[in-house]
């Protein structure tokens, strides 16, 4: 099915007089792998938080797969087909890997019977089987029962993706998935995201690592100071003087590295 999974129109957000997001509009095509980039403080994570309803929007609209989700509460958005990972890993530290993944199924358990089914006591049930299968598919079947707090960082990152995917989203939001990963872990993560994309799920990713973005994404939206300054393919972004200036024009050392990556 062609068309847009996500349509963001005229988004505005201020925190106490400070305009963080100013008139941002962009579309995410179905099946695409779109990146949201920009220097530090450009408002990328804020956009994610607006999309998932962590903050209410001041103005503008968010349409997900044809339904307007601008004002619906966070907890109902996952039902509309949106799921996310976090900049700092936010798995449940006291739950096992499989339990973390089963949390991702929560929105699909509608009836009281499903809510009160003893997942933890019945050894074989379809929820657990599904979660274990999803982990196995992602190459994470060696630690289903382990408490996630004790697992390596890269593994936790991938578990976050599996947890988000098991809610069966149409749009997967990833907030700096590659941050803090070494090369091997980055490649493993990328392979997992290729799998995700191959089954038709749209990916919207916030990322600093331009190398990662160029390898993964086919479309890039560039933000600076809460405004959209450019939009196009990775190659176009790479050549764009506007983007280069945005990165070099700030004094942040972090964005200097970003510019080096973009150049």
């Amino acid at each position: 099915m062609a068309g847009n999974v996500l349509a963001v129109t005229g988004l505005h957000k201020s925190f106490g007089g400070l305009k963080v997001i100013d008139e941002v509009s962009f579309d995410v095509a179905r099946g695409s792998r779109t990146a949201l980039i920009g220097p530090n403080g450009a408002g990328k994570t804020t956009i994610f938080n607006l999309l998932t309803g962590v903050y209410p929007v001041d103005a503008g609209s968010v349409v997900l797969a044809g339904s307007d989700i601008t004002d619906i509460p966070s907890k109902d958005r996952v039902v509309h087909g949106m799921s996310r990972s976090f900049q700092n890993i936010r798995l449940m530290p006291h739950l096992s890997t499989v339990e973390n993944v089963m949390l991702g199924q929560h929105a699909r358990a509608h009836s009281l019977g499903q809510l009160l089914f003893p997942l933890g006591l019945v050894a074989r049930n379809r929820w657990r089987a599904e979660a274990e299968a999803a982990l196995a598919e992602a190459g994470l079947d060696s630690y289903p029962g382990e408490v996630v707090a004790n697992l390596p960082y890269g593994v936790q990152k991938r578990i976050e993706v599996v947890r988000a995917m098991i809610s069966r989203p149409q749009l997967l939001l990833l907030d700096e998935p590659a941050a803090g990963l070494n090369d091997v872990e980055t490649r493993q993560l990328q392979a997992l995201l290729e799998q995700v994309s191959a089954i038709g799920v749209t990916i919207l990713v916030v990322e600093h690592d331009m190398h990662f973005v160029r390898n993964l994404c086919d479309h890039v939206v560039v933000l600076n100071f809460g405004r959209k300054i450019f939009e196009g393919s990775p190659e176009e972004v790479h050549r764009s003087p506007v983007v280069l200036e945005a990165y070099l024009g700030t004094d942040e050392p972090g964005s200097g590295e970003g510019a080096a990556g973009a150049a």
């Binding site: 949390l103 003893p118 933890g120």
Partner: peptide, 14 residues
């Protein structure tokens, strides 16, 4: 051990 229990434990964590 139910899904509700899992939800409660998740709320405890985050």
């Amino acid at each position: 051990s139910t899904r509700l229990g899992l939800a409660l434990r998740s709320i405890h964590d985050d």
